[in-house]
Design a protein around this nucleic acid. Structure first.
Length: 886
RNA sequence: GGGCACGUAGCUCAGUGGGAGAGCACUACAUUGACAUUGUAGGGGUCGGCAGUUCAAUCCUGCCCGUGCCCA
C-alpha cells in the first residue's frame, strides 16, 4: 500500500542513484536509431545551481527524455566550463585570505592550486544537476580544459592564425585595471552615472590671452591629448584650424584640427582628442596620424607621460588635482552636471579603461558572414523568432574579438616569440621550435606568450570538441550537427553566435538547427534576481521543500515563449499539490485493484465512459507531442495537468467509482481501463515529473508484478491509433457532465444543502436524452445527489426550480427549500444575458454586408447560436412565468 | 538616441480575425468517502488609450501612454 503522500526527499536521491548506476542515460553511437543531440550549455565550474540553470536544464531534460522514449538515440552532452576570470578570482581570493597571492606562488604553483580547487569544489554544480533529475550522458562529461578539448583549442587557433583570421594587433582594448587584463566588448557593461562635464580653456599658441574652450568628462586624460578637433563647417573655429593649443599644466602644444567627429551642437563644439584613451579619439587619431600618448599604467595610475607631481597617482585623484590646478590657473570655465554612461567590467565592477596594448584578435567580421547566412537561410531557426533580430543586429556590426586575457587560468596561447620578437604559432613548442629553426637557421630559445584565451573561445567549439573533433569519431559523425540548443538570451552573443561561427568554419555546417531561447527567471515581483538585491530564490531550497518534480513542473508550466517567468512559491506549492493529487489517485487505483493488465487493448473497450476517457488520453498525448515539437512547454504541461486532474480524477474516477465494488464484465473492463490509464499517465508525465512517476511505477507496477520492467524513461512513448478517438463517446459523456454540472450549479445557487437528495423531473426530452438518462441514471443521481429521475410531460409543480440542458427542461421540485425571490433573480439574470446575446447576433444577421461577406459557416453558426439561445430563453421564461403563478 | 518585447480577472499568466480563458487568491457550502496538499459552486475583465483596415478587431496596421530589456 502506498504511503499517504509522496515523500520526495529521500526517494529522489534513491531513484537517481539507481538510474545513474544503470548507465541508462548513455548515448549509443553504434545503434541504428536516429540521433537526437543536445549540447548542454556548460555551467561554470565555479558555479552553483541557480534558477536559470534549473529552467534551462529542466527543459533540456524534458526534451531528452521525451525523444529517448520516442526511440531516438539521445545524446545530452554534459560538461563544465573553466570560466577563466571567475575561477581565477575564486582561488585568488582564497590565497588572499591566507595572506599570499598568485604572484608569490608563481604561475605553475598557482595553476596547481586552481586544479586542486577544481577537483575539490568543481563538482558542486554537476551534483546539483543530479538533484534536478537531469539525465545527460554523464560518462561523456567534459571540461573545457580537458586534454582533448585543449588540443581542439590549439588546433583552431593555429589554423585561424594561418588563415589570417587570428592576428596580433596594437589597438585600444577594454582594460580592467583591477583584474589587470583585457576583456572583450561583451564583458563590458554600460551603466548610467551622474557625472560632470568640465569646460576647460586651452591657451592658443601665439595669440595673446586667447583660448579655445573644450568640454570633457575625463580631464585626467588631458596629458594624453594630441589634438583639439572642431567641426570643419564650424564657422566659430575656422580661423583656428591649423594653429596650436597648449595643454594646460603639461604645457605641451597640440594642433587644432578639423574633423567631423566633433559635434558643433555639443558643449563648446571643440573637443580634446586623446587617441590612447578613447575609442572615438583613437579613430580620429588614425585619420590624422596623431601620436598616441598613453598616460596610465596597468593600474590606471598616471605614468611617466604625466607631469611631475602626477606620476603614480590614481586616475581619480589625478582628476581632482588637475581640476584644482586648472581652477587656480583660471582655465576651468564651467562644470555642468550630466548623465553619462560609463563602462564597467562585468566581473570586477570597476570602470574600464580604453587602453593601448598588444592583444590577439579574431577577425569576427569575416567569420560572421557564413554564420549570418546560416540564420538568414533558415538553416538555423531561433525560437522565438524575434531573437534573430538581436542576432543579426550584433553580427552585422561585429567588432574584432579580443581573445587574449592577461590571466593564468585558461588555455595558454600557442604562440612563441623568438629573440627578435618574431612570433611562431604552433600546436606545441616543438612545432614552434621547428619553425624558428627554419627562420634562424639554428635552435634558439623561445618564450611562450604569457596570456591565455578568452573562455568563450573554447566554449565556442563545444558542439564538436566534446564529441571528438578533430578526430573523425563515430560520435562526431552521428551527433553533429545537433538538434536544439536551449539557452538564455544573455549568451546569444557570448556563446551562440560564436558556436555558429566556429561550426560553420571548422565543420562547414551548422552546429544545431534550432536555438530555443528561454525566459529569464525573475522573482515574484518581476525583479531580476541578484545577490545584491537579496531576492534570489534558491532552486535547491524549493526542491527541499516541495520536491524536484514540483519545481520542474512549475518552470515548465511557466515557460511560455517570449515572456519572462515571475516565479512565486505559491505556484510551486500548487504543482506539488498536483503531484499529491496523482499520488492519491494512484492509491485509489491500488485499493480498488485497478492495475495494468498485460495484453489490455484499449480499442476493445465497450463501456462508453471508458471509450471517452481513452479518447481524452489520446488527445492529450497529441497535444503534448505537438506542444513539445514546437517548444511550447507550457502547453504540454497544461495538457497533462488538465487531463490528470480535470478529466481523470474529477470525472472518470467518479463515474466509475461505484462499479468497482461490483463483479462482472463491466467492472472488469473499468478496472483494466483504469489501470491502463494510470500506467499511461505515469509514462506521459515522466519527462516532466520523473521522480513521482518512477516511484509509482516501481511500487505499483514493478514490485507488484503489474508489468513495467526497468525505468519509466526507458519505456516507449505511447502512440495511440487515431481510431481510439471516439467522438460519439465524447459527445455522450459531455452531455452527462453538463447535465450533472447544471444540477449542481442550480443547487448551489439555491443554497440547497449538499446533503439533500432531490427528485428530478425531465420534460421535453428527446429519445436520445431518455436513452442516456436510462444509461447513466445511477451516475447522474450519485454525482448530482438525486433520489429519483422521472421523465414526465406535466407542467412543473409549484415551487420548482428549472433549468435546461439541450432540448430538455430539468425540474427540481423543492418547494420547501426554495427561495422564490432568489430563483426569480437567477432566472432573470440568465434571461437577460441570453437576450443581450440574441440582440448582438441579430445585429450581425441584420447586416447585409455581413451576410454577403462572411463565410457561410460563420453565418450558419450565428443562426445556430441564435436559435439555441432563443430556445433556452423561452424555456427559462416559461420557468419564470411558472414561478409567478406559483 | 536606436531597437526589441510586453500591457487580458485582485495576482501570475495562456489564447484567438467571428461565442473572453486557466491557476492562485476571494466568497458560499461540504469533513472521517484515494485526496483539506480535497470536493462542489460562485463573483469578478469597456482584453492600456485613440484612430485606421475589415462585413466583423482583444487579435492586423499606425500613433500615444505605461513597463521591462538590449544596443549606442
Amino acid at each position: 500500500m502506498l504511503e499517504k503522500t509522496f515523500q520526495h526527499g529521500a526517494l529522489e536521491e534513491e531513484h537517481y542513484k539507481k538510474w545513474e548506476n544503470s548507465a541508462s542515460f548513455a548515448a549509443k553511437p553504434e545503434s541504428n536509431n536516429a540521433p537526437y543531440a543536445v549540447m548542454m550549455p556548460p555551467p561554470n565550474v565555479t558555479g552553483s545551481l541557480h534558477m536559470g540553470h534549473a529552467l534551462n536544464m529542466t527543459l533540456q531534460d524534458i526534451l531528452t527524455r521525451y525523444k529517448r522514449m520516442k526511440g531516438f538515440d539521445a545524446l545530452w552532452q554534459p560538461g563544465t566550463d573553466h570560466a577563466g576570470i571567475a575561477t581565477q578570482m575564486v582561488v585568488e581570493r582564497q590565497l588572499d585570505e591566507k595572506g599570499t597571492s598568485r604572484r608569490d606562488l608563481g604561475r605553475e604553483e598557482f595553476l596547481n592550486k586552481v586544479w586542486e580547487w577544481k577537483e575539490e569544489s568543481g563538482g558542486t554544480i554537476v551534483r546539483q544537476l543530479r538533484r534536478l533529475g537531469a539525465t545527460p550522458d554523464w560518462d561523456r562529461e567534459r571540461f573545457t580544459m580537458d586534454d582533448g578539448l585543449s588540443a581542439a583549442v590549439r588546433k583552431v587557433f593555429v589554423q585561424l592564425y594561418k588563415e589570417g583570421l587570428i592576428y596580433r594587433d596594437k589597438r585600444l582594448v577594454n582594460w580592467d585595471p583591477k583584474l589587470l587584463t583585457a576583456i572583450s566588448d561583451l564583458e563590458v557593461e554600460q551603466r548610467e552615472n551622474k557625472g560632470s562635464m568640465w569646460h576647460i580653456d586651452y591657451p592658443i599658441e601665439g595669440e595673446q590671452a586667447q583660448t579655445i574652450r573644450i568640454a570633457t568628462t575625463r580631464p585626467e586624460t588631458m596629458f594624453g591629448d594630441t589634438a583639439i578637433a572642431v567641426h570643419p563647417d564650424d564657422e566659430r573655429y575656422k580661423h583656428l584650424v591649423g594653429k596650436y593649443a597648449m595643454i594646460p599644466i603639461a604645457n605641451r602644444l597640440i594642433p587644432i584640427i578639423a574633423d567631423e567627429h566633433s559635434d558643433p551642437e555639443k558643449g563648446s563644439g571643440a573637443v580634446k582628442i586623446t587617441p590612447a584613451h578613447d575609442f572615438n579619439d583613437f579613430e580620429v587619431g588614425k585619420r590624422h596620424d596623431l601620436p598616441m600618448v598613453n598616460v596610465f599604467d596597468i593600474h590606471a595610475h598616471m605614468n611617466e607621460n604625466a607631469p611631475d607631481g602626477y606620476q603614480g597617482m590614481d586616475r581619480y585623484a589625478a582628476r581632482k588635482k588637475i581640476l584644482e590646478e586648472l581652477e587656480n590657473l583660471d582655465l576651468l570655465a564651467d562644470e555642468e552636471s550630466v548623465v553619462n554612461s560609463m563602462p564597467y567590467g562585468d566581473r570586477s565592477g570597476v570602470v574600464i579603461e580604453p587602453y593601448l596594448t598588444d592583444q590577439w584578435y579574431v577577425d569576427a567580421q569575416t567569420m560572421a558572414k557564413p554564420a549570418i547566412a546560416a540564420v538568414k537561410e533558415d538553416k538555423i531557426k531561433f525560437v522565438p523568432k524575434t531573437w534573430e533580430n538581436t542576432y543579426f543586429a550584433w553580427m552585422e556590426n561585429i567588432q574584432p574579438w579580443c581573445i587574449s586575457r592577461q590571466l593564468w587560468w585558461g588555455h595558454r596561447i600557442p604562440a612563441w616569440y623568438g629573440p627578435d620578437n618574431d612570433v611562431f604559432v604552433g600546436a606545441d613548442e616543438a612545432d614552434a621550435l621547428a619553425q624558428a629553426r627554419e627562420k634562424y637557421g639554428e635552435d634558439v630559445e623561445l618564450r611562450q606568450d604569457e596570456d591565455v584565451l578568452d573562455t568563450w573561445f573554447s566554449s565556442a567549439l563545444w558542439p564538436f570538441s566534446t564529441i571528438g573533433w578533430p578526430d573523425e569519431t563515430p560520435e562526431l559523425k552521428k551527433y553533429y550537427p545537433g538538434d536544439v540548443l536551449i539557452t538564455g538570451f544573455d549568451i546569444i552573443f557570448f556563446w551562440v553566435a560564436r558556436m555558429i561561427m566556429m561550426g560553420m568554419h571548422f565543420m562547414d555546417d551548422i552546429p544545431f538547427d534550432t536555438v530555443y531561447i528561454h525566459a529569464l527567471v525573475r522573482d515574484s515581483k518581476g525583479q531580476k534576481m541578484s545577490k545584491s538585491k537579496g531576492n534570489v530564490i534558491d532552486p535547491l531550497e524549493l526542491i527541499e521543500k516541495y520536491g524536484t518534480d514540483a519545481l520542474r513542473f512549475t518552470l515548465t508550466a511557466m515557460a511560455a515563449q517570449g515572456r519572462d517567468i515571475k516565479l512565486s512559491e505559491e505556484r510551486v506549492e500548487g504543482y506539488r499539490n498536483f503531484g499529491t493529487k496523482l499520488w492519491n489517485a494512484a492509491r485509489y487505483c491500488e485499493m480498488n485493484n485497478c492495475m495494468p493488465q498485460p495484453g489490455f487493448d484499449p480499442s476493445s473497450v465497450s463501456y462508453t465512459p471508458n471509450k471517452w476517457i481513452i479518447t481524452e488520453l489520446a488527445r492529450t498525448e497529441q497535444a503534448i507531442e505537438q506542444a513539445l515539437d514546437s517548444y511550447k512547454f507550457n502547453d504540454a504541461a497544461q495538457a497533462i495537468y488538465q487531463f490528470v486532474w480535470g478529466s481523470f480524477c474529477d470525472w472518470y474516477l467518479e463515474f466509475t467509482k461505484p462499479v468497482l465494488s461490483e463483479e462482472g464484465d463491466k467492472a472488469d473492463e473499468i478496472r483494466q481501463t483504469t489501470g491502463w490509464l494510470l500506467s499511461q499517465i505515469v509514462t506521459l508525465l515522466n519527462p516532466f515529473m520523473p521522480y513521482i512517476t518512477e516511484e509509482l511505477s516501481e511500487k505499483l507496477f514493478e514490485e507488484q508484478g503489474n508489468g513495467a520492467e526497468g525505468f519509466v524513461f526507458q519505456q516507449q512513448w505511447p502512440e495511440y491509433a487515431e481510431s481510439l478517438q471516439d467522438q460519439d463517446a465524447t459527445d455522450e459523456m459531455g452531455w452527462v457532465m453538463q447535465f450533472i454540472s447544471e444540477i449542481r450549479s442550480v443547487r448551489s445557487d439555491m443554497n440547497v444543502p449538499a446533503g439533500a437528495k432531490l427528485s428530478l423531473i425531465v420534460k421535453d426530452s428527446a429519445a436520445q436524452t431518455q436513452e442516456r438518462l436510462n444509461l447513466y441514471e445511477e451516475i447522474i443521481s450519485r454525482m448530482a445527489r438525486l433520489q429519483s429521475i422521472e421523465i414526465k410531460e406535466d407542467a412543473a409543480p409549484a415551487g420548482a426550480i428549472q433549468t435546461v440542458v439541450g432540448e430538455a427542461t430539468l425540474i427540481l421540485p423543492i418547494a420547501d427549500i426554495i427561495d422564490l425571490d432568489k430563483e426569480r433573480a437567477r432566472l432573470e439574470k440568465e434571461i437577460e444575458k441570453l437576450s443581450s446575446d440574441i440582440k448582438k447576433i441579430d445585429q450581425k444577421l441584420g447586416n447585409k454586408k455581413f451576410l454577403d461577406n462572411a463565410p457561410d459557416e460563420i453565418v450558419n453558426e450565428q443562426h445556430t447560436r441564435k436559435s439555441n439561445a432563443e430556445k433556452l430563453r423561452d424555456k427559462l421564461s416559461a420557468a419564470l412565468k411558472q414561478l409567478e403563478v406559483a
